[in-house]
């Protein structure tokens, strides 16, 4: 009664997603509506990224799924297991070995290559939600390229608090045209969206939208010219486990003290392993 389909989604649904991905790449930063099928994981748990990954997959792919920088996180484990069980493709935690990387809230620390595709899970695809909830009006704003409401928000925040209050999902301008929601990555990762050798795809399953940043595309944060874009600061701090510096660190608060660890656990593991190998040599 239940026929097995490669990569779960029926072929016509894949075709629709593929068509919209091609459009998304051709119109960088523009959010393309798609029909968005229900997945066996809940809406809001990465179903947009999942549908993109499933539509991309072919037999010789190697998939990495990571959540807040950690491949062992509950949802990453679940999604990875699901993808491999419906497609039979290989899975990895190693950024370097992956052909497709599905991620939530982080960009892996290890630099990506032209042969890789980064797929972001997106809760709110629309950068304008914080200033305009009405979808028809949002569309009009994008059509007119009139982002004054975002600039006003930035101005108000800057005058009251010294900087934007937006800590993640920081608005970015793609190829000097569309303002785009980069998904809830920290500001540290925003600069890493710019001019990436890898194709970056974004999927919001619940909101039924997908969009893309082609490789080698200009991505700039919403910012006044005379104000610096300040990212999370880990100066003088290093990972307690592997000693890494200059990367995004998790803060672990315990009674009376704060400890720092690599947010990207694969990066941390690799650094430890390299150090261990070096000693053994």
């Amino acid at each position: 009664m239940i026929k097995r389909v490669f990569a779960f989604i029926d072929e016509d649904a894949k075709k629709e997603i593929r068509r919209n991905l091609l459009k998304a790449v051709a119109i960088p930063g523009y959010i393309v509506p798609f029909s968005s099928r229900e997945m066996p994981v809940a809406r809001g748990w990465g179903t947009g990224g999942l549908q993109i990954s499933l539509s991309l997959l072919q037999e010789d792919d190697c998939i990495k799924v990571t959540d807040q920088g950690c491949d062992g996180s509950v949802n990453a484990v679940n999604i990875r297991d699901f993808i491999t069980s419906v497609s039979g493709v290989k899975a990895t935690v190693n950024t370097r070995d992956a052909t497709i990387i599905q991620t939530r809230h982080r960009i892996p620390e290890h630099p990506l290559t032209e042969d890789q595709i980064l797929v972001f899970q997106v809760p709110y695809p629309e950068v304008l939600t914080m200033v305009e909830p009405d979808m028809a009006k949002q569309k009009q704003i994008h059509a007119d390229s009139d982002y004054s409401k975002l600039w006003v928000l930035l101005y108000e925040d800057t005058s009251q608090y010294g900087d934007s209050r937006i800590s993640n999902r920081y608005p970015v301008e793609i190829n000097s045209h569309y303002m785009m929601d980069p998904s809830p990555i920290p500001k540290y990762d925003i600069a890493r969206l710019n001019n990436s050798p890898a194709l970056q795809l974004f999927g919001a399953g619940r909101e039924k939208r997908l969009y893309a940043i082609p490789p080698y595309t200009r991505v700039t944060p919403l910012k006044f010219n005379d104000r610096p874009f300040i990212v999370e600061d880990f100066k003088g701090k290093s990972c307690k486990r592997c000693g890494a510096e200059g990367i995004f660190l998790d803060e672990i608060h315990t009674t009376g003290s704060v400890h720092y660890f690599c947010s990207d656990t694969e990066f941390c593991d690799n650094k430890l392993k390299e150090a261990k190998d070096a000693i053994e040599r």
């Binding site: 490669f6 072929e11 894949k14 091609l22 790449v25 991309l56 194709l199």
Partner: peptide
């Protein structure tokens, strides 16, 4: 036949996606 075409489609989607991306 459906299976073969679906396989062909997934083989061909990646190059066409890369082509429009690059």
């Amino acid at each position: 036949r459906h299976g073969d075409i679906e396989r062909l489609n997934r083989i061909n989607f990646r190059p066409i996606l890369q082509a429009i991306s690059r």
